[in-house]
Nucleic acid binder design. Structure first.
Length: 645
RNA sequence: GCUGACGUAGCUCAAUUGGCAGAGCAGCUGAUUUGUAAUCAGCAGGUUGCGAGUUCGAUUCUCGCCGUCAGCUCCA
């Protein structure tokens, strides 16, 4: 017998091997109808599964988020069912549920065409209508090998299974798949789904293995949820920074330098504004430095990059030695160590924080490049802190405040992750114990919630990562605080302590925006190009209604510029409507219209971005004061994040 | 790097089976002097990504290169 504890504390005692369905039925008939699967001691199993162990027991219905993954996994099987019907020769790879849906990998001679995908979706609807139950079977290894003898992918998977693992299959109508489960009761449960796109994917992610054809899809319990998801995908397309970069005239790319942005005047204004913002916040407690862009291999040999990272560096040909023995820097750390190590440091200087915005180059694979989010040339708001071990606690708190304050300025929410020692690492266990303890206690002291990521740390030390969610709910890993005991050893860094002997400092690597380029991309998408006033490349556009008012408008524009406002006049002879339309499309936060009335009264008819005809007539000085206040307070005002524009 | 799709005017996109490369917007010129999201007319704009090949003839078909995009384990 096993004992199951229900969420309300009630207990059920049932014989070993009782199907979960029977337990659910004993709780209530209506619950059985709504049930998708059950969770026993944290493990999700389907209703047909014989229960082998007891513990906390709860029933999943459509309302439980976990049930969606079950539905999607079943969706993957239904997709495979349809594909096998139309393409019986297709080999079956993996078909898991993923964050936003599911996919399935198929081994086929010819890649799928968009028409194939349409046909698969139509066929899936048939499979759904046929309501095949998902039948679970547990079989032994010999039987498993026999059943999947025609599919080398599955045979390989079976061979990888541990000796003590239960091998199970799931059958829905004509389709059988090696699968751990769980699944929904029958194929009829999949009502709202859509196949999205296809792509090549290496078998088991290994580029030396054959390439399979992956079909991505998504599914939801409710029609509205599916529609909302598809709408979100559309919305993401509309906010795509690569598109907005063009229409808002911020940056471009050219085949003469793949992966490196050309910034226009408007884009450069924004870029500089962002950098100035960080620089300003760092003015008091940090020391900004600049180090060379090119180094010979001595440095990279010392840092260890020459061995492991050389493929990703842009190497430079040496005329005298005829060798590729130097490179553009792909990161700042080693050069900061060189500068630190060049003179003696007292404990009184610590923590010493070197910051820089130097340009970095990484030779990314061509296929990895994508807009501003994956580039070959970029800058980081990079910082290396040299400190005593006893200062870690306070320093981490200081850096965290700094980082979170940065995101808050843009209305971005951060999730904090604490990553501990990976399997492949350097340094003793004792060192890792100390480092992890120090970092986590500092993290705890901040009182902020965080997530644990065991094994996800850097090879030289544990770290805290900051994942930021933009206005579409997409997560980006930006900031990081990494503890490093290894670099000070490698570079023999020292400080003179209170006791007048030399000691080894600890290094903390810190980034806030990550790369400025990528952060720009995130901001463009987060705000949908409608930037807060302080960040907008053009803050005010002054529009004289007719030519004869241009001199007045020019004077007003000059006054705004003198006050430090990024103002431009548009006195072209096009109609006011035309010029306003253009200003709105360029997402200028304010348009100031000057007609005869305003010229005489010394006022402006102010139109706020996205507010349509709602206009306000204010004095020139009052308006200037208002814009300056927007800038000073870095108000999010009517930015795209605030309005969803 | 690998797989697939794509590359036509500054931008967004057309161009039957291979048969003179087009449109809208933007630009320029002129007229219009405008009161809150497109005034009208005219003009100009191209080595169809680059290079070979097939053909009487290539934007279209074939090959190579360059670039862009979707992806390349969230494990049965």
């Amino acid at each position: 017998m096993i004992v199951l504890t229900l969420p309300d504390g009630a207990r059920r005692e049932v014989p070993v091997g009782t199907p979960a369905r029977d337990v659910v039925a004993s709780i209530g008939e209506r619950l059985l109808k709504a049930a998708i699967a059950v969770v026993v001691e944290g493990e999700t199993v389907d209703l047909g599964t014989p229960l082998r162990r007891g513990g906390a027991f709860r029933v999943l219905t459509e309302k439980d988020p976990e049930s969606l993954a079950v539905l999607r996994h079943s969706g993957a099987h239904i997709l495979a069912t349809a594909v096998r019907r139309l393409r019986p020769d297709a080999q079956i790879g993996f078909g898991p549920a993923i964050d936003d849906g599911f996919y399935y990998d198929f081994g086929v001679e010819k890649p799928f065409t968009p028409e194939d995908v349409e046909a698969f979706e139509a066929e899936m609807r048939k499979v759904v209508a046929e309501k095949y139950p998902f039948v679970r079977e547990e079989i032994d290894r010999v039987e498993a090998n026999r059943r999947f003898s025609d599919d080398p992918l599955k045979l390989e998977r079976i061979a990888d299974l541990g000796a003590d693992e239960v091998i199970s299959t799931y059958t829905d109508g004509p389709f059988i798949d090696l699968c751990r489960g769980p699944h929904v009761p029958d194929t009829g449960y999949l009502k709202h789904f859509k196949l999205l796109h296809t792509a090549g994917a290496y078998w088991r992610g290994d580029e030396r293995r054959p390439m399979l054809q992956r079909i991505y899809a998504t599914a939801f319990w409710k029609k509205e949820d599916l529609e909302q998801h598809l709408f979100r995908l559309e919305e993401a397309k509309r906010r795509d920074h690569r598109v907005l970069g063009k229409t808002l005239d911020l940056f471009m790319f050219s085949q003469v330098s793949p992966g490196s942005a050309f910034w226009t005047e408007r884009g450069t204004t924004m870029y500089n504004t962002l950098v100035d913002f960080v620089r300003d916040r760092q003015r008091e407690a940090f020391q900004e430095i600049r180090t060379p862009l090119i180094y010979n291999k001595m440095l990279w040999e010392q840092s260890g990059h020459w061995g492991k990272y050389r493929e990703n560096m842009f190497l430079i040909h040496n005329k005298e030695t005829e060798e590729l023995d130097s490179s553009l820097k792909p990161m700042n750390c080693p050069s900061h160590y060189v500068l630190y190590g060049a003179k003696k440091h007292s404990y009184r200087e610590l923590p010493l924080r070197y910051v820089t915005f130097d340009v970095l180059h990484r030779n990314e694979l061509t296929g990895a490049l994508s807009g501003l989010t994956r580039v070959r040339q970029f800058s980081q708001d990079d910082c290396h802190v040299f400190l005593m071990e006893s200062q870690i606690d306070e320093e981490v708190r200081f850096l965290m405040d700094f980082i979170l304050g940065h995101y808050a300025t843009f209305g971005l929410e951060a999730r904090i992750k604490f990553a501990t020692r990976p399997e492949v690492r350097i340094g003793s266990d004792e060192m890792w114990d100390r480092a992890e303890r120090a970092l986590e206690s500092a993290l705890k002291a901040t009182g902020k919630p965080y997530e644990l990521k065991p094994g996800d740390g850097a090879f030289y030390g544990p770290k805290i990562d900051f994942d930021v969610q933009d206005s579409l709910g997409r997560a980006w890993q930006l900031g990081t605080i990494q503890l490093d005991y290894a670099a000070p050893e490698r570079f023999d860094l020292q400080y003179v302590g209170e006791d007048n002997t030399t000691h080894r400092p600890v290094v903390i690597h810190r980034a806030v925006s990550g790369s400025i380029e990528r952060f720009m991309a995130i901001l463009i998408e987060h705000f949908a190009g409608a930037f807060p006033v302080w960040l907008a490349p053009e803050q005010v556009r002054v529009l004289p209604i007719s030519d004869d008012l241009a001199p007045v408008a020019a004077e007003v524009t000059a006054k705004m510029k003198a006050a430090g406002i990024r103002a431009h006049m548009d006195a072209r002879s096009d109609t006011l409507n035309y010029r306003i339309r253009e200003g709105e499309m360029m997402k200028v936060p304010y348009m100031a219209v000057i007609g005869k009335r305003e010229a005489e009264a010394g006022t402006l008819a102010v139109r706020e971005r996205g507010q349509g005809k709602k206009q306000e007539v204010v004095g020139v000085d009052a308006f200037i004061a208002r814009v300056l206040e927007d800038v000073r307070s870095r108000s999010l005002g009517n930015s795209g994040a605030a309005t969803g524009a």
